[in-house]
């Protein structure tokens, strides 16, 4: 369903999305010396009220995908369908109309809130920008504070007076101000302490149930992604290497990278003394000069000759699971 796209109406459908950053040298006379393909041919769909988890190591392009979806940055190629409208090329007033439906929860609970604004001003900002009347703003802020578990007295306080978890609640309240249908959570819990992280995860899940939100949940923490997501996509060097139903991905990963990623996660379980784990050798190659063929072949424990020359396409493994690996032929 994720790949073929035959099934029901999706809220978000991304096709062949790409973002290439030029690499420049020189200050005055800038010249382009190369391109980083941060995102290269990514396709997926997210249904109403569902969550797609996007995982991968730093530099794999997962955060760039999130920023592309809310048009913080402009795509180089591809389309982003929001409820049937392609928003990937809209700008100005046309894009502004869609902004109320697209929101973003940021990673850093410190830098995502303007230190000079009160909680009320922060939460109301999307409403102010969208031109809501003042009375409506005030009422909405009260609703939102209650919704995310903050006290009414908090509205006149400043961000520095709050702990990381509370700040993240403020950021979530701001994201929900315009009643969006789709929210990108970019590492939204990874900067928090473990015990607080669980509160925010629970909050995000509850809000999804109550408000019917769809999430793109970008994170590097696989156990949190598994808990949050319906479907999971694994990215490596700008491409999706495996995508599918969460249960299948975690129970029977098809791509060697997914397998390695899963076995690298230390599990807080007594039985989890490390045994047969697939340790990946080497590091992420430079995205400026990615390997030929399958980008993973330099670290892949099962790579063979074909992997160096031919790039594998995503192909269906099972119903609701696809992976890009020559071994699946």
């Amino acid at each position: 369903m994720l790949i073929e796209g035959a099934a029901g109406p999706d809220l978000i459908r991304v096709d062949n999305l790409a973002k290439h950053f030029p690499v420049t040298r020189g200050a005055l006379l800038r010249r382009v010396v190369g391109t980083v393909k941060a995102v290269d041919g990514v396709s997926f769909a997210i249904g109403h009220g569902r969550t797609l988890g996007l995982v991968g190591e730093s530099g794999c392009g997962k955060s760039t995908v999130g920023r592309l979806l809310v048009r913080l940055i402009d795509p180089t190629a591809g389309s982003i369908m929001l409820d049937g409208t392609d928003i990937s090329r809209l700008d100005g007033e046309a894009m502004f109309q869609h902004r109320r439906n697209l929101q973003f929860v940021f990673q850093d609970p410190m830098s995502s809130l303007n230190p000079r604004m009160t909680v009320e001003q922060i939460i109301a900002e999307p409403l102010v920008v969208q031109g809501a009347p003042v009375a409506e703003q005030r009422a909405r802020v009260s609703e939102l504070l209650a919704l995310v578990g903050l006290a009414p007295a908090h509205r006149t306080r400043y961000p520095h007076e709050f702990s990381g978890g509370q700040r993240q609640r403020i950021g979530i309240a701001r994201a929900l101000a315009t009643n969006p249908r789709f929210v990108v959570c970019d590492e939204a819990v990874s900067a928090l302490d473990v015990s607080v992280q669980a509160q925010i995860v629970n909050l995000l899940k509850r809000l999804q149930r109550e408000l019917g939100l769809s999430y793109l949940f970008v994170a590097h923490d696989l156990s949190v992604v598994r808990h949050m997501s319906d479907d999971v996509a694994v990215m490596y060097l700008g491409r999706i290497v495996e995508i599918g139903d969460r249960r299948r991905i975690f129970a029977a990963p098809a791509h060697p990278y997914t397998k390695a990623l899963l076995s690298s996660v230390p599990a807080p379980r007594q039985s989890a003394r490390r045994e047969a784990r697939t340790l990946l050798s080497g590091e992420l190659p430079s995205p400026l000069n990615p390997p030929s063929g399958c980008a993973f072949h330099t670290r892949c424990p099962v790579a063979f000759a074909r992997c160096k020359v031919e790039r594998p396409e995503l192909r269906s493994v099972e119903t609701g699971q696809a992976a890009a690996c020559h071994l699946l032929d």
Binding site: R99, F104, I122, E125, Q130, R174
Partner: peptide
């Protein structure tokens, strides 16, 4: 580069507002 500036942009804020408010 602060994320609150990005948050304002996501909401659709124009350059003038970002400059004056943030």
């Amino acid at each position: 580069e602060q994320q609150y500036v990005e948050a304002a942009l996501v909401a659709g804020a124009h350059t003038r507002r970002v400059l004056l408010v943030h």
